[in-house]
Nucleic acid binder design. Sequence first.
RNA 1: GCCAGGGUAGCUCAGUGGUAGAGCAGAGGACUCAUAAGCCUUUGGUCGGGGGUUCAAUCCCCCCCCCUGGCACCA
Length: 512
Amino acid sequence: MKSFYITTAIDYVNGSPHLGHAYEKVLTDVIARFRRMMGDRVHFLTGVDEHGQKVQASARKRGIAPQQYVDEISAEFRALLPRLNISNDDFIRTTEERHKKVVREVLQRLFAQGEIYKAEYKGFYSTRQEQFLQEKDRLPGGAWPEIFGEVTEITESNYFFKLRGYQDWLIEFLTKHEHFIFPSYRQKQVLEFLKEPLNDLCISRPRERLEWGIPLPFDEGYVTYVWFDALLNYYSAVADQPGVWPAAWHVIGKDILVPPHAVYWPIMLHAAGIPLPHGIIAHGWWLQSGAKMSKSTGNALNPLDLVAEFGVDAFRYFLIREMNVGQDSEFTREQFLVRYNSELANNLGNLVNRTLNMTTRFAGGVLPSAELSEEPEQELHALWAKTRDEFIPLCEGFQFHTALERAMQFVTATNAYIEKRAPWKLGKSAEPRDQALLRTSLATMAEALRLGVALIQHVTPATTAKINDVLGYVPGDAWRDELHWGQKLDGASVAAALVLFPRPAPAVPPKG
RNA sequence: GCCAGGGUAGCUCAGUGGUAGAGCAGAGGACUCAUAAGCCUUUGGUCGGGGGUUCAAUCCCCCCCCCUGGCACCA
């Protein structure tokens, strides 16, 4: 059984979860569920990043201990997962002992190998912002912006990781592994970035300046800062589980690809003698251009509210159907409703309901066997074979939006098949041939429905389960065996009706 | 400025060196099992602008314009 380890980025607990967090969880979950369907042994990790300056400051502002603060915010992030039906196997917090232990081990190893050294860092420091400033922070005239308050040039000792020495190695690695980063144009971007010389990476902060972090094992006067803490979660969570690492894929936002995940992370692992992960998937962002406007009129859209309003599967379906992984997409309620109404309610939901209704009305609620296979049946069978054969490679290549489009086309074709056979007419005829056609058409539409929703079950797991249930069907364990057109539903007792994805009440006319 | 992605029907996008495609929206029609759903037909584009290569370019090359994102020690 193939091992497949997949992670989301860990969320920084300095605010509440929003659409971006939700999307990354859903996308990763869809990949995880798909790989499970394909028979892989999947391990799915998500979690939170709980150290750092901002957390320390936020806790202080509220007059509570950092640990109490992160306990509260982390709970919020964790609560998001069941709401989105996320099937993660583990949830890591960087304040956990298992994580700190591995971080310290890796740091110690690198220090012993001479990959980490101490040096003085001289720079302009803002006391108010508690950070060093960069030249680019300066105003055109050379002065520092007001928000930084008093800025003084200070010298500070810190520990540095020898990033620079691995630049050529990384270029060679990326050149050899063309598909390390998805989409591929992101990989080009990384190589572009690597044309400029790298500097060594500052990985520490003196404790008097930052208390809330993991102490360096070789100098307790410092804590490690950001990268060795946050990135190592992917490894620390499974370090004691043989067979998981390194079959790893990291799902991240495009904003943290370069340099952290595409440069620091591979080099850190390589230097520490840890095998590299299989790949990185960098997704784009949901844009809400209209959000500001609607906010001013008091109609701000919190996308997560759509989960409560339309159900988790509709939300998941929209995110995956609408977004081409890697690119950006606009999130609007209008677009959501278009997908919801036309694809989920009218096309799929209505197919479910009419199938149940006709089976109840014309066959006493028990699915008959298909007896004939004429042109309409053969056409649908052929389309199914084509759809299934295209669907899987599309998902393997993270082209879920196209895969869903194909699945929806098959549902449309099933609706068209029903029109062609018109069971409601056949039901009025006592001719034996018409009765045979009636039984055939009922069996065919139900089987097509079963197959169609089996295909999309990684995106809409609850819906697929519900439809199987009303079809009186219990699927087997092996997903791929479910994808053969057959007679699995013969004799099944179906429910009388089910309105999935009910259409929302007509929208109140928008403001004049 | 540099790099990347993109500019194709009202909207969202696919696409190929050789008569321009899909979905949604719009229009018309036949039907009634169904969530006033579904099905069939259909209007609609000088494929950002200019030049070049070619028998032939939306697709290749060059220039220009516009949009988006990135340009490190910041999560």
